[in-house]
Amino acid sequence: MPKKIIKPVLSAQEAVKCVKRGDSVMVGGFNYGGIPYTLTDALYDQGTDQLTLISNDTIYEFCGQGKLVAGGRCKKVIASHVGLNKTTGRLFHEGKMELELFPQGTYVEKIRAGGAGLGGFLTPTGVGTVVEDGKKVLEVGGKKYILELPLTADVALIRAFRADRMGNLTYTGTNKNFNPTMATAAKIVIAEVDEVVNVGELDPNNIATQGILVDMLVLKGDSVYASRT
């Protein structure tokens, strides 16, 4: 089914209703920057569990997607760094949650490959380390590469700056991070934004995510984290 041309602007509570038990959910953000805090709060409040969380890091227990981990909502986390949120490591070591870690560049490229229709890619990162365990290592031009596979999700929660009603998005500063890439790699994409404007009001040269990728728009909330990001 094609996506709607004009995207609904919903409350975060309405928007996250599409996330079901057991879904894989990508969440944008690097450290505390560019996280869709209003959406992660709404998903936390909704109580949906058995999620596979795909986020670069799991930030802190008390905010963003870190709450989903600390609240026991995730059966699995796929990330590159989870050191700030000690609960992530604890749940993993207690056998209560799966944890899959990738080098950050590999992690984002897996998502890019997922969104770009690639069957995988070859990277030199991790050769000779535990990262290559269980993976194919191929030699190209005398150099070793690890075959890494694509990553997609049921839903992506992303943070952009401005949206038009067609779902075209612009980003600002280092909030960009994983957000535009994740927008390409999930069946349903929900964007949290500072502002929604009329179609034609965004400079086409500045649109970094095409509206055809986006399903729903949510205005950022007024929590401390959401409002300042």
């Binding site: 890091d57 990330a79 590159s80 760094h81 989870v82 050191g83 000690k86 490591g89 604890r90 993993f92 070591h93 944890l99 870690l101 080098p103 950050q104 560049g105 590999t106 030199p124 990162t125 991790g126 050769v127 380390t129 990262v131």
Partner: peptide
């Protein structure tokens, strides 16, 4: 110790 993850370090030193 709890595994923190490698973040961007592996890509940086290889690249």
């Amino acid at each position: 110790k709890s595994v923190p993850g490698m973040g961007g370090a592996m890509d940086l030193v290889v690249g």
